[in-house]
Structure formats: structure tokens, C-alpha cells
Design a protein around this nucleic acid. Structure first.
Lengths: 198, 198, 198, 198
DNA sequence: GATGAATGAGTGTTCATTCAT
DNA sequence: CATGAATGAACACTCATTCAT
């Protein structure tokens, strides 16, 4: 599992990762083989290993992609001029939408991120991912205009939203059985409750 | 993949599942092979299949085990006579402790649970797991003496706590870097913040 | 694969072999497990090995059974007072019926039979099977009142009938495609042709 | 069990199938493992799966091979200019020789052949096998200059020859015991008898 | 006499990865 | 640069058979 810094994404990396993405979403990461990725990307299997060290690095690359998407999503659904509640719901629904579209990437959001960039063994993607996470965090802090305990508050709220989205998605059937509410209705209610708590 | 109700755990099932548990925690479920489980449990591989239908059933058995543990944990750290905050922190720290000890089981908490028990294809363990989940839920409802919107509130809070614990555990390094706080200190602060929100 | 002479079939051997027979017919020999036989026969797996040395001996026992059936079948469908053609068709249709009912046993008819009974390593069943074959042969010889070259004629005709039945059964689809005739119609025509040849 | 048409036999397919052939003859198809085939062919087990979809396809490939051999054998031992008896004996002895050399393939001759080529799920080999069978059939029809009932006659005779060869081979010991004749002598006598019947 | 318990020895198949060309 | 070819290492699961009790 040797990790080294690699030159930045060429057109090939993009093409390969896009193929991988489609397959990951369609059938899950574990069940997607490098062969399938190669075929869909229009390369030979061996060529994949020219542009990515291994399957893991492809995943890493896509984690970055997912972070970029979330950021975009959040930026486009929030605004200085909106009310706090509108903004809060904007963030929530960005994440929700994201989880619906890329349920598997959502997991990544809550996954460990390599922060020890002093070592030389990391993928460039990991560094980039980290930085985008930072940007989102900074953006949210400003958005909610929090004065003190900024970090912890943003972190806690963010974590709670993620927790609620994840749990609700997984237990949808159970919720339906207990409350009769659809997943969609239930989660909006949860978001509102969460906002009131703030 | 025939699933049928099976007679309850014998001493062998216990021994095997304990071996599986150790390995699952140490190296993850996917990477643990039935051979390894057999070896550690002191049985031959074939014998494993005498006591469990397949690997999946071992997992299912352990999910139940994990639910039982959480329940015990929560019961022993909360009480009618405590203040609301004490109880809240009790629940939080139960889950936290649990996640520290069995990080992999914690995932199970947020995992889909088979609820369609009308079908005949499920393991007894799955049904049992569901029921313990119900018991915890009922207990928490009473504990916090919530009058209306009970279900949604308990669910939201529970999800938030899980989200916070999970995210904090995964991003511990990042948090340290940003705030200088240890994971332990940071998460206690998060719990308190969460309580204030209620 | 040690073979030793064994004491004659008790009631248990009968019960076990009957279970095996049902399963062999239903799902083939290879796909039938000793466990299944034991279960259907109402014994424990280990008990099977008390009454039969191994799976092979069960098969051997059933081969004998099949021989007995064929003999009965032939005896009941031929008679001194019938015409030669009637008798010939009787034999043919006995074998045909037999093949339809126990396609898998039919193979046995054309299988090697242990004739070296001087050695001590054979199953009693094998000896018995051999003797019934002899009886059938003797019966047919008398039936067709052949004077010279008896053995070879009976053997050749018998073999031809078997060959025709087997090939026709296996190539039924092909025959349908080529001639438009059903397997039943086609094989009766073959039998008649065979008789004319005699 | 996806079956698709594959590109034609390379040198590897030949090498692998030749190894498989030896093992199949020596110990039977069922008892031959893919590992053994790989070892004897000088490849790694995984490589076998590069050139054949699965074990079944190897068998299918060899069935074709066997059909080609029989055809050659028959063509080289019969001729327009020979007498009918010479030709008949030629066909018989072709099949006999073939059975001696590849007893296990001989079984294939009497086995079901996939005729439903409208479906897309078959191996190219299976189609080819079918076509060679057709060619043999056509050739024999012309050879014996049969006018009417051609199909049924050729089919019946062919089946009878196969039946006689198979039965005689399996019961050689028994025949020796009963007639004192060697298998070789006995079967030639059978062939002659068969010819006289025509 | 009957069996519960245990297992050795496979079995076909998959897949990420390497490397000579 | 790109890849065809090859494979090591697994992996979940099966089953006939044994033997102490």
C-alpha cells in the first residue's frame, strides 16, 4: 500500500474516475472490479495502473469529487440574504439531496481523512479533499455568523445533520411502520426540530 | 441463502461468535474469513457451518449481541432520580463508550434492520435485535418524559448523538489540529452543546 | 474403497435404499447427499454407515433392484403364446418404459458388472445383479427359440434395443426437428424396423 | 453461468483442452479438477479461466473435438467404391476404434446436444458439434444409398452400432466368461450379424 | 445398536496486481 | 505510452466419512 505523491489528474484520470463513479453508484464499491472500470473507461486494465496506483486511489479521487459536489450544492442553496432558517434548511437539504444521489459517497463525509500531510505518503486527492472540507467549514461559520465556540458549534450541527440523514435513510421502513410518515416528510420534520434546538 | 429460524445459541455459537467478534473488531467484517474464525475459535472450518448457516448469520448474531450491550450500558448509566442533564449525558457516554469498545458494532446501530417479519426468511437474531431496539426507544421516551412528538424527538436526538460520536471519532486528528482539544474533551463539549439545544 | 461381503439386506437396508432411490430419481445420484438419504429414511447420517459401507454400496444395491424390475417388466409383457413380433415389441417396450421411469437406472444396464466373484471384494448385490441378468438372458433365449449362435444374437439384439432407446431419448429434440415426429412415434417405428431386420 | 460465443481456439485453448482430455480419460470428468487441468497444461489455475469461461466450456470444447475425430475416422475408412458390407464394417470399426481410444467421448455421442440455437446462450462449440453430426448423418445416408425412410434407418442403425459397442465394451469380462471369445472377436461377429439384419 | 459431533480435503471461481514487450 | 498475458492468493461453502459414547 505504498503511497506517493502523484502528478495531478490528467484527462485520463478524469475519464477513469468517471467510469468508476458510474459503476460505484450503480453497484457499490466492493462489487465493482478494476476490469469493469477499465472497460467502461475505454482503457485496458493495465492502463488503469498507469494512472492510478491502485483501486484505493481511485476511490480517494472520487472522495474529492464528492466533496466538491457538496460544496457546490451548499453554495447554491444558501445565501447571505436568506433568513437563518432558510439557510439552515438549505444546508440540510443539500446534504439530503446529496445522500439520495450518492448514498455511498455520503459515507465518505463521515470517514477518516488523512490529516498528517507532513508524511509523504498520501494522495494529492486526500489533501485536496481536506482543503475543501475546510472551505465548507469556513463558509458555514460565516453564514451563521457565529461569534464564539464557532468551531464546535458548526461541527456539532454538521454532525447532527449527517447523523439524522443517515439514520433516517437506513431506518425508513421502521419509521414508516411506527409513524406512518414517508421518509421525506419525516426528515423535514427532523430538520425543523433540529433548527429549533439551535 | 435459505434463512430459517434456528434453535438458540449453544455454547458453540457463543464460542464461535466471540472469535468472530475479535476478528471483526481487529480487521473488519469483510476482511475476516470463515477460516480465521474457525481457527481462533478452535474448530474446523466445516464445524462453523454446523452451528451457523453462513457467515452472514454470524454477523447477524453479533448485531444482536451489540444491541444487548448498548441496552445494558444505557440502563446502568441512567436513572429516574437523576437530573435530565445527567441522564442525557449518561446516554451519550454510554454510546460513546460503546463506540470506543466496539467501533464496528456502532455502525450496526445505524444500519438497516430487517423489519418485514411477515416473511419467513430472517434469522431469529434479527427479530430479537429489532425488539431490543424497541425497548431502548421506549425506555428513553419514558426517561425524558416527553409528551408530544415523542417519536420524532427521540429519534432525532438519538441520531444526532450517533452522528456526533461517529464524526468526532473519525475526525479526531482533524479536530486536534484545529482546536487543540483532545477527542475526549471535545466530544464532552459537543454533548453539552447538544443538551442545551434541547 | 475396501469391499467386503456383507450380511444380507435387513429391513433397514430396504428402508434406506428406498429413500435413496426416490432421491436419485428426483435429483440424480451425484446431487444426492448421504444426509438427504438419512433424513428421508428416518435415520441419522451415521446410522447409514452401519448398514451400508458407503454411498457406492447403496448405489450397487439399487442396481440390483433395477434389474429385478426389468425382469418383472419383461416377464409380464411377453408370453410363449404370443407371436414373435408381439414378444419382441414386448421386450422393447419393457425397456422403454423402464427407461422412462428410471432413466438413471437404465444407464446401469449398460454398465460394467463385476464378474470376478473369485475375489472377495464385491458386494453381495453385485453377485445378485449378475445372476438376474443371466436369468433374463436365458429367458429371452428360450422365448425367441433361437437354435445356434444364441448368445451372440440375444446379446446383439438386446444391445441394439438399448442403444436405440438411449439415443432416441437423448436426441428427442433433434429428432422432432428433423422428422416432426414425437419421440413416442419415432421409437415405435424404430422398434418395428429393428424387428424386420432380425 | 453466462454463456457467450467466444473467439475461436487459440494455441492455449488447444493446450488446455489436451491436458483436460488426458485427465478426463484417465479419471473421468467429474473427478477431474480445474486445478489438475491447469497443472498438467502448465498454466496457473486462474489462467484457465482466461481461455475458458468455466469447466463446462472445456468439456463442450472436447465434445466438438471428439465429433471431428469420428468424422475423420469414418471418412477414411469408407468409400463409394467399396462394397456395402465393407462400408458398413468401416463405420462400425471407426466407432469401435474411437470407443477404444476415447471411451469417455463415446458417451458424448449418445448425449443430448443443445439444438435450441435460437437462444443466445450456447457455446460456439455446441453449434459446431451439432453441425458435424449433421454432416456425418448426410454422408452416411449417401453412402448407403438409401431411398426412403432414410432418416429413421440411419438413425436406428447408428444407434444399434453404438449400443452394441458400448454394451460389449462394458460386459467384456462377462462375454469372455460365457462364450470364451475375446472382446475383439465377439464384436466383429456382432457387426456381421448386424449387417445381415439390414 | 444408534448417533451427535466433528472434520479433512476439496471445489469452481474471482480479482487486484505485475511485467515484459 | 499502452497493454496482453499471466497469476497468487483467496474465499465461502460442501460432503462423505469417522468415532467416541
Amino acid at each position: 500500500m505504498a503511497r506517493r505523491v502523484k502528478e495531478e489528474p490528467s484527462i485520463h484520470r478524469k475519464r477513469i474516475s468517471e467510469a468508476a463513479e458510474k459503476l460505484f453508484i450503480r453497484q457499490g464499491i466492493e462489487k465493482t472490479t478494476v476490469s469493469q472500470i477499465a472497460e467502461l473507461a475505454g482503457y485496458s486494465k493495465a492502463t488503469i495502473y498507469v494512472y492510478f496506483e491502485n483501486k484505493e486511489e481511485i476511490i480517494s479521487y472520487l472522495v474529492l469529487h464528492s466533496m466538491e459536489l457538496i460544496k457546490k450544492q451548499i453554495l447554491s442553496s444558501t445565501d447571505d440574504t436568506y433568513s437563518d432558517e432558510e439557510n439552515f434548511m438549505g444546508v440540510c437539504n443539500s446534504l439530503l439531496k446529496y445522500n439520495k444521489k450518492y448514498p455511498m459517497y455520503f459515507q465518505f463525509l463521515q470517514d477518516t481523512i488523512n490529516v498528517d500531510f507532513s508524511s509523504e505518503k498520501y494522495y494529492q486527492s486526500e489533501k485536496d479533499t481536506y482543503m475543501i472540507g475546510e472551505e465548507i467549514h469556513t463558509y458555514l461559520t460565516k453564514l451563521f455568523n457565529l461569534k464564539d465556540d464557532t468551531f464546535i458549534t458548526v461541527f456539532t450541527v454538521w454532525s447532527s445533520i449527517c447523523g439524522v440523514i443517515q439514520m433516517t435513510a437506513k431506518k425508513a421502513k421502521y419509521i414508516k411502520k411506527q409513524t406512518g410518515l414517508s421518509e421525506t416528510d419525516f426528515i423535514q420534520a427532523e430538520f425543523r426540530r433540529l433548527f429549533k434546538m439551535l
